[in-house]
Design a protein around this nucleic acid. Structure first.
Length: 445
RNA sequence: CGGGCUAUAGCGCAGCUUGGUAGCGCGUUCGUCUGGGGGACGAAAGGUCGUGAGUUCGAAUCUCGCUAGCCCGACCA
C-alpha cells in the first residue's frame, strides 16, 4: 500500500476523550473513531489488525477440531425467556422491538440460540460430540463504557459451544479450549495467564479467565510468579488425546493464579513469599463448563445408547477479539507509539523514502515496494512529500515492526537501512539482503 | 446508577467572571526556501460557539430545560 493513497488519519495531538494508552494510540494512529459511547468505527488500519486477530482465532479453533459458523446479532426474546435469562440479564441487555412489537435483543452471547439450533437437529448420542463457534459482534449496554475498545458496548467476540454426552467428554472439550487459547494468545505475542474465575451470569462450575498482565487492567490478580514462566511454545498437541490435553490443563492451572473474585488468602499464603505476586490484568478470554444448565431448561436432549433421553453437557468459551487489540497495545508500546508483534501487525514492513522526488530514491523505493508486495510482505510505502522526521514519527506511531529507510546517502553506497521498531537497532544492507532478511523473519512467524 | 466535569474550526485549547469585532497552536491549501527524527518564511481557506427557550437594543458570555461526551466509584468480555 502506498501511504499517499491510503486512508490513515493520524493525529498529532491526543484527543481529550482518551485516558489510557491503548485508546490514545488507537485514536492517534487512525485505527478507530468513536461513533457513540462505547461504539467504534474501525478505520482501515484498525480493521486490518482486527482481521488478523480473527484469522489467528479461526486457525487455532479449526486446528482444535471446532467448527465455524455464524449466528445473527439480533435475537428473538422468546429463547431467552425459555432459559430464564431474559429477566436475569438486566439492563446490560439491549432490548429492541420490531415493527410487529415483538421483543428482540442485540445478543450479548449466544447460548440460547446455539442450543436451539442444536436441539432441532441433534437427537442421538451418535452425533456427539459437537463444538461450534462463531466470531460475531456482541452488545452489552455497559453503564459506563470506557478505555476505548477495551470496554466498549459493541465488541467482537469469538464464542464457542460444546455439546457432549457426558461430563467427562465435556471436560475434555474444556481442556481442548484451554490448550487452543494458550496457543492463540501466544501467536498474538501475548502472555495470557489462565486464572480461576467466577462464573458470572453465564454460570458454570469450572471456569478459567485468561488475563494479560497490564497496569491498566480492570482486575486485580494474585499469582505464583512461576506461572509467568510457563509457555506452550511449539510443542505438538493431539487435540483428541484426552490425557495430553488434561496434562496441559494441569500444567497451566495447578499453580496459584486467581482474580480478586476468587482470591483465597489462605491458599495464597502457602506460596513461598518470594513468589507471591499481585498485579492487574486485562481479561481477554474465558472458558466455562456449565453441565446441563441450559440443556435442561431448553430441552436439549439426545438418546443415549440405552435408549434414554438425557440432557447434553455443555460449555461455552469466549475470546474478546476486539478488546485484544487494546490488550496487545497496552502490553506493547513505548512513548512514540505502538509496537506490533509480527503476527498481528497491519503491515509487515514500512518503507520510508527520505527524499521523495529524487530519481534514485524513488526508483529504489518503487523496486523494493514491488518486490516486497509480490512476496506477500505487505509493505506500507510512505511516498508522501514529507520530511524525514514526519515520516519516522508516523511509522513509529503506527508501530510496524520493521522499517526500511531509503535515501540518497545510503544509496550512494548501495545500501538501505532495516530498523527494528522494538529494539531501534538498524542495519545497513544491500536491498536484496534486506528483502531476504524480511522473508526469513516472517517465515518464522 | 451515585459523585464530579466538559461541549467554541479537523485535533488541542483560550475567550465567559465584568454581554457589543470569535481568537491561538497544530493540521489543511498555495508559494519560496529546505530535505536523515514532526524545518523556516509569506499568503489563504475553514466556526449554526452542542441544542431549545428565556432575559436584553444586543448573548459564545447571564438564566432555565434538553442532549451528547469524559473522569472517579459500583458493575462488567
Amino acid at each position: 500500500m502506498r501511504l499517499s493513497r491510503y486512508f490513515l488519519p493520524i493525529l498529532k495531538e491526543t484527543p481529550s476523550e482518551a485516558s489510557i494508552v491503548s485508546h490514545r494510540l488507537m485514536l492517534r494512529a487512525g485505527m478507530i473513531r468513536q461513533a457513540s459511547a462505547g461504539i467504534y468505527s474501525w478505520l482501515p488500519l484498525g480493521f486490518k489488525v482486527l482481521r488478523k486477530l480473527e484469522n489467528i482465532v479461526h486457525e487455532e479453533q479449526v486446528r482444535a477440531g471446532h467448527i465455524p459458523m455464524l449466528m445473527p446479532t439480533l435475537q428473538s426474546a422468546d429463547l431467552w425467556r425459555e432459559s430464564g435469562r431474559y429477566d436475569d440479564y438486566g439492563q446490560e441487555m439491549l432490548r429492541i422491538k420490531d415493527r410487529h412489537d415483538r421483543d428482540m435483543l442485540y445478543g450479548p452471547t449466544n447460548e440460547e440460540l446455539i442450543t436451539d439450533i442444536f436441539r432441532n437437529s441433534i437427537t442421538s448420542y451418535k452425533q456427539l460430540p459437537q463444538t461450534l463457534y462463531h466470531i460475531q459482534w456482541k452488545f452489552r449496554d455497559e453503564m459506563r463504557p470506557r478505555f476505548g475498545v477495551m470496554r466498549g458496548r459493541e465488541f467482537l467476540m469469538k464464542d464457542g459451544y460444546n455439546f457432549d454426552l457426558t461430563k467427562e467428554d465435556a471436560l475434555h472439550a474444556y481442556n481442548r479450549h484451554l490448550v487452543s487459547y494458550l496457543r492463540t494468545y501466544e501467536r498474538m505475542g501475548l502472555k495470557a495467564i489462565p486464572m480461576r474465575a467466577d462464573g458470572g451470569p453465564i454460570g458454570g462450575d469450572y471456569t478459567h479467565e485468561f488475563l494479560v498482565l497490564a497496569d491498566t487492567g480492570e482486575s486485580e490478580v494474585f499469582y505464583d510468579s512461576d506461572v509467568t514462566d510457563l509457555t506452550f511454545g511449539s510443542r505438538e498437541i493431539d487435540y483428541d488425546d484426552v490425557a495430553q490435553c488434561q496434562a496441559v490443563l494441569e500444567e497451566f492451572t495447578t499453580r496459584y493464579a486467581r482474580t480478586d473474585e476468587t482470591h483465597d488468602e489462605a491458599l495464597y499464603a502457602e506460596i513461598p513469599e518470594e513468589r507471591r505476586r499481585t498485579a492487574r490484568g486485562i481479561e481477554v478470554g474465558q472458558i466455562f463448563y456449565f453441565g446441563t444448565k441450559y440443556s435442561e431448561v431448553m430441552n436439549a436432549v439426545v438418546v443415549n445408547e440405552n435408549g434414554e433421553r438425557v440432557p447434553v453437557h455443555m460449555g461455552s468459551h469466549g475470546i474478546g477479539v476486539s478488546r485484544l487489540i487494546g490488550a496487545i497495545i497496552e502490553a506493547s508500546h513505548d512513548d512514540k507509539g505502538i509496537i506490533w508483534p509480527e503476527s498481528v501487525t497491519p503491515f509487515k514492513v514500512g518503507i520510508v523514502n527520505l527524499k521523495q522526488g529524487d530519481g534514485e530514491a524513488d526508483a529504489a523505493c518503487n523496486a523494493l515496494y514491488k518486490e516486497l508486495d509480490a512476496a506477500g510482505l505487505e509493505p506500507l510505502y510512505d511516498d508522501r512529500d514529507e520530511r524525514a522526521g514526519g515520516k519516522f514519527a508516523t511509522m513509529d506511531l503506527i508501530g510496524l515492526p520493521w522499517r526500511l529507510t531509503i535515501g540518497p546517502r545510503g544509496l550512494k553506497n548501495g545500501v538501505v537501512e532495516l530498523t527494528s521498531r522494538k529494539t531501534g537497532i538498524s542495519e545497513e544492507l544491500v536491498p536484496a539482503e534486506a528483502v531476504a532478511r524480511l522473508k526469513a523473519i516472517y517465515a518464522a512467524i
